[in-house]
Design a binder for these strands. Sequence first.
RNA 1: GCCACCAUAGCUCAGCUGGCAGAGCGGGCGUUUCGUAAACGUCAGGUCGUGGGUUCGAAUCCCACUGGUGGCUCCA
Length: 596
Amino acid sequence: MSMPQVDYKESELYRIRHSAAHVMAQAVMEMFPGQARIAIGPPIDDGFYYDFELPRALTPEDLQAIEARMREIIAEDHAFERQALTGDEARRLFADQPYKLELIAGLEAGGQDEYGAEIAGKPEISIYRDGAFTDLCRGPHVERTGMINPSAIKLMGTSGAYWRGDEKNPMLQRIYGTAWKTAEELEQYVWRQEEARKRDHRKLGRELDLFSVSEEIGAGLILWHPKGGMLRKVAEDYCREEHERGGYQFVYSPHIGRAALWEISGHLGWYQENMYAPLDIEGQAYYLKPMNCPFHIQIYKSRTRSYRDLPLRFAEWGTVYRYERSGVLHGLMRVRGFTQDDAHLFCRPDQMPDEIDRVLAFSLNILRAFGFRDFQCYLSTMNPKKAAGTPEQWEAPTEALRMALERAEMPYRIDEGEATFYGPKIDIKVNDAIGREWQLSTIQFDFNLPERFNLSYVGEDGQEHRPYMVHRALMGSMERFMGVLIEHYAGAFPAWLAPLQAMVIPIADRHVEYARQTAARLKEAGLRVEVDERNERMNAKIRDAQMQKVPYMLVVGDKEAESGQVALRLRSGDNPGAMPLEAFLARAQEEVAARR
RNA sequence: GCCACCAUAGCUCAGCUGGCAGAGCGGGCGUUUCGUAAACGUCAGGUCGUGGGUUCGAAUCCCACUGGUGGCUCCA
């Protein structure tokens, strides 16, 4: 969905959208003569926006009026004219536009463009004029407003947005719009939005009875219903087996720990804003865990470790609680309590490269099993404002992660300053079926905790040495992973994951007994199967199974009961028809085993 | 947390400028026993998110809180 930035910035579409932003700003200025303050209005992935300070909040009706006026301005076909100015000239021109004045000052100071992005040297100050509207802008634009297709633009909505993205600044009103070359492209875009809405995990979660959130329990806290619970169990069981094969050992740890633990780990120093207020237990402060690492470290420390013991890989489906501001909560994707498929690797320095290689391959392998094909890797580097240790300490581990990515021949991007406080990390994001990117796996180097907890192992030389430590979560949070999975498959899970794999549909009451026998045989063979014994017509049962996205529908009537067959229907609508029960079973088992 | 909007039956939603709380689906019961996406009939379901206020009278107007939606900021 996201196209290469460089190409996009030079594309005609980019100029169209940038120009549409100007046209929209003009329409808004006219709506509030002398009262509208304009900030910035760049093109974005699928359109554009413009930020304003206005005397009142915009309504949906305003958007309609603005959109209508935009079409008029386009029809007036004004030419876009560029003009270079001195700082003083620009200041005179925008004397009543405080945000523009701030931008002009920034441009004069040099080092960054009007969006705050770093650039070399001092940019030329320029304006673009189209008819009655003039904006501080470096361009580029289309030549005339008439080159914007009036039937390929649409205003999408409003939102609040902080000036320059800083929450200490005043909040402006942002209007989002989309613009394309043709009406058909706009239509396709609107259609894609609808598709995304259709596979929204919150909607499917209710329709397929997978999970819910209860107001009584609290925001951002998930209840897994039996169907969702099965989905999650199947995913977890598979991963547990893989972990066991991959040399991990399973551990369990409590949900709370004493303040001193979090003091030593550094969480109270670096991470407190994400932690809940302490519980008082007999005068001692305990904190709900936001991470599992200090617990696994205590397990490591429970005895003397020899170099022969390493690497140690402690895995736990650990439920953690993190404070999230109410406005950011979102279905399963952003919650306050979630379970990580967490593990901590402890190894000798000489084992580190191999461990990183292994965990990277392991992670991709698991993600592929769940049907993800496209991955984006990110290497997050030190954030000097939020980092334990010195830049020198960060250098080697950052390089180690980079080398692992190189060895794996994974293309990656650098996320400057996005590391955790305790070390650099590799994040793996996956692209789902409709191209959206989701952050799942994270592999984090940690040189901080072994130090703080004074971890050691006895080396070959009989001396104490400091082990290296890596945190990693592959599915990340089970909640988010399930959410991504729901949207990726639009609720139609492959048979191996589907909570209910087969629905047996007796045509009339006299077929119920045979249906039950059929179900019993399939259950015995390990399939998740139910019989729809309701007093409904076959058509209704098929429709319901279809809407529940059950992979296999097995219709049984007189013919099947007599011959020991089942009539298979797939949710795709395909109808392979009658076949011996054992033939269906073999087919289903094969598909489940292949995780198709 | 901030900006805007929203909250009526399990779900989706109607309910006008304040005057008797509704529909479809779903659920219960009955009839029907049916061959690949909705049989028919009948019954039950609501302190109109919560608390306060205005008013003769509030689902409807005002305030606060809770929860949600789209963004911003932040992030697994």
